[in-house]
Computed example of a mutant assay.
Amino acid sequence: MINLSLLVKLQAVFAVASLTYLATSAICEQMIGEPLSAAAIGPSILMFLAYCAALFLPRTGRIGWYRIAMVPALVLFGFGGVIGNITRYIDGGLAEYASLAAWGIAVAINFFGTVLNVIAALKLFKE
């Protein structure tokens, strides 16, 4: 079982990786007119800022609220991020992505976060 402190740190790594991907996508969109993926950059950044805020809940002793916050994160990052990216690729190939690497990185980042969020939501961690 993973320690809660390490879990939250890994979730912060996930958030930073996601925000970096989104920022890179925004820069690509400004420079070449094409983002890295179909992700809605602005709303996605706001979603990750809310996610980051939820990562402070364990520090204040609100483990239950933290676990509840991971449920919508699972839906958004698991279904939207992992399954959504895979489905878009199956339906349209790389039409909505800058490259195969951009698609693969998006799936990998979201899969990493989804695994962590499952651990958090199901309380598969030590406090």
Rank of each mutant, 00 (worst) to 15 (best):
Ala108Glu: 11
Met47Arg: 12
Tyr21Asn: 08
Ser44Asn: 05
Ile2Met: 13
Ile86Tyr: 07
Ile2Gly: 00
Gly113Phe: 01
Val107Asp: 01
Leu10Ala: 06
Val75Ile: 05
Ile86Pro: 09
Ala101Leu: 13
Tyr21Gln: 05
Ile27Cys: 12
Lys9Cys: 06
Ala69Phe: 01
Gln30Tyr: 08
Ile90Leu: 15
Ala121Leu: 03
Phe111Trp: 12
Pro72Glu: 01
Lys9Tyr: 12
Pro58Ala: 00
Ile90Cys: 13
Thr114Trp: 03
Phe125Ile: 09
Ala108Ile: 12
Phe112Trp: 06
Phe77Asn: 07
Leu10Tyr: 04
Leu49Arg: 05
Tyr66Asn: 03
Asp91Leu: 15
Lys123Thr: 06
Leu74Cys: 02
Arg59Ala: 14
Cys52Asn: 14
Ala106Cys: 09
Asn117Val: 10
Ala73Met: 00
Ile86Ser: 12
Phe48Glu: 09
Ile105Asp: 06
Met47Asp: 09
Ile32Ala: 13
Leu22Val: 08
Phe79Met: 03
Gly42Asp: 10
Ala53Arg: 05
Met31Thr: 14
Ala15Gly: 11
Phe111Cys: 15
Asn110His: 14
Tyr66Thr: 04
Ile41Leu: 09
Ile27Thr: 12
Met1Val: 11
Ala73Arg: 00
Ala73Ile: 02
Val13Gln: 02
Arg59Phe: 07
Val115Arg: 05
Pro43Ile: 12
Glu96Ser: 10
Val75Lys: 02
Phe111Glu: 06
Ala53Gln: 13
Thr20Met: 08
Phe125Met: 06
Gly113Ser: 08
Asn85Thr: 03
Ile105Trp: 10
Ile109Gln: 03
Leu116Asp: 03
Gln11Gly: 07
Ile41Glu: 03
Gly81Ser: 07
Gly42Met: 03
Leu116Ser: 02
Leu4Trp: 01
Ala15Asp: 09
Ala54Gln: 10
Ala15Lys: 09
Ala26Thr: 06
Val13Ser: 02
Ala12Phe: 12
Phe79Cys: 01
Ser5Lys: 06
Tyr21Leu: 10
Ile2Phe: 08
Leu55Lys: 00
Ala120Thr: 10
Arg59Cys: 06
Arg88Trp: 12
Pro72Trp: 01
Tyr89Asp: 14
Phe56Tyr: 10
Ala23Thr: 14
Gly104Ala: 14
Phe48Thr: 02
Gln11His: 07
Met1Lys: 06
Pro58His: 02
Leu94Glu: 08
Gly64Met: 05
Tyr51Trp: 12
Gly113Glu: 09
Leu124Val: 08
Ala121His: 02
Ala53Ser: 07
Phe112Tyr: 13
Ser37His: 10
Thr20Pro: 10
Leu10Ser: 00
Phe56Gln: 05
Leu10Asn: 05
Tyr21Trp: 10
Arg59Gly: 06
Arg67Pro: 10
Leu55Tyr: 00
Ser18Trp: 10
Ile41Cys: 11
